[in-house]
Each structure stands twice: as C-alpha cells, then as structure tokens.
Amino acid sequence: MSISAPRYASAPTERLGRTDRALAIVRQQFLNQSTGATWAVVALTYIAVILTDALYVLLASFVGQATSATFEFAYESPVLPFLLLIVATVVGAGCIAQDLGSRSIVLFLSRPIKTLDYLGAKMAATGSWILIATVGPGIVVVVIEAALGTVSASVALSAAFGFLATGLLATIFFTGLVVALSSLTTRPLYAGVATFGLVLSLYIGVGVVAGITGNSIVRYADPITNVRSVAQAAFGVSGAHPTDPVASAIILLVGGACLAALAAWRLSRVEVVAE
C-alpha cells in the first residue's frame, strides 16, 4: 500500500477561548434542566418560602420589632433546607449521569474542550438553578417586607445579606454533592436517590447520635445543620448555635470543593461504554 503524507483541508483558524466554549455548555445544560419538574420545584420553593417567611416576619412585626434575625425562620423551619435539597436533586441528578447514560457526553468530549471545562460548565448551570431557588425567594420576602414597611431599610439589607451569604454557601456544597454523585452513575435516578438519601440520612442519623451521646461534634457531619448554623450567624441570630458557624462555613466550602474534585477525578477516568 502506498502511503503519502497527510494533506489537511483547512489551515487552523482563530477560535474563541475556553471560557466561551464552556459557556456554550452552560447554556445547553441550563436549557436541558429547564424542565417542568424543575420549574415546579423552584416555584414551590418560592411559594413556600414567601408564604411562611413573609407571614412570620409580618406577625413578628405585630408583636414586637422584626429584625434581620426574624428572617432566618426560612432556614430554621424545615421549608427552605428541604426544598433546597429537592431542587438540588431534581436539577442536578442528571447533569452528568444523563450524558453518561445516553453517551451524549461524547458530543462534547470529542471536541477541543477539557474535562474540567465540561465539569465547570455543568456545575455552573446546576449551581445557577440552586442559587435561584435558595437566594431568590428570600430576596423576594425582604422586598415585600420592606415595601410593606414592616422592616427598616437597614434591616432589609442585613436580611438580604443573610440570604445571599447562606444561599451561596449552601449552593456551593449542594452543587458539589449532586454533581459528584451524578458523575458516579449512568442513571439520574440513582444519583437523585443517593443525594436525597444521603442528606436525609445524615440529618436524621446525626440528630439521633448527637441526642444519645450528647456529643455536638457529630453535628458537623450534617449539611443541613451546617447550613442552619451559618444562616443563624449570617442573619445575626443571638444565642448558642448548633455548631460553630465559621467551622460550618468552612466545612460547606471545603466539602463542596472536595466533592467537585471527586467529580473531576471521576470524569478524568471515565470511559463511555455502550450499555
């Protein structure tokens, strides 16, 4: 067989950089996650948080002076933490598992894009949805209360900061968690069950163990307790917190980063095999 040197059809052309290429995946993933189920849980989160928190702050303003700590009720009640968990599960469980299961991941990774860019894009899209669901309703509550005049502008600003700071930390952790679990399977259902089951198990299990042993250290193992502790500090709630807020914040941040690293490690080794 005669072999000649390769002759290429076109000269290399200037292309956009990694950020622009990753943004294309962010857009694609955000649209993919924009399903009826996502909108339903996000809407449910808004309705539930606005109704309970706004009403609570309103009632508090009748019996005394509502402060920024009053707004923390959204995190103190089961409403926001568990809706946050549901949103993360619904939005994020399929973000990588779906691509692996359908093998559509090859459409991305056979292109000039790094695995880290792909992962970053998936996390950005998933995190955006979680952030919308965690910070958004709280900000709406603050705006409503400020508009009604039940709180002063400074209290409103302080409460908005509380929602933003807590929401960001919670988003980082839960995004890392759900994306890492999604990268470990080809079935979104498994990733969803694992996310929901793990967080719920830790919440119940840690509560029981801490109650029996009286050892509050174990509470750091519960993401929801950590989020609540951070929320209490961010909203300026006085008194003893279930855990040290700074330590909890670090755990949420480092935990989210470690989970993202796990997903990156997994993706760097993943082979797409037909089922």
Partner: peptide
C-alpha cells in the same frame, strides 16, 4: 451549540 463548543463565535 456544538460549533460554539468548538470555539466559533
């Protein structure tokens, strides 16, 4: 979308 991932404006 895939062309954008390739880096085309």
């Amino acid at each position: 979308t895939l062309l954008r991932v390739d880096g085309f404006p």
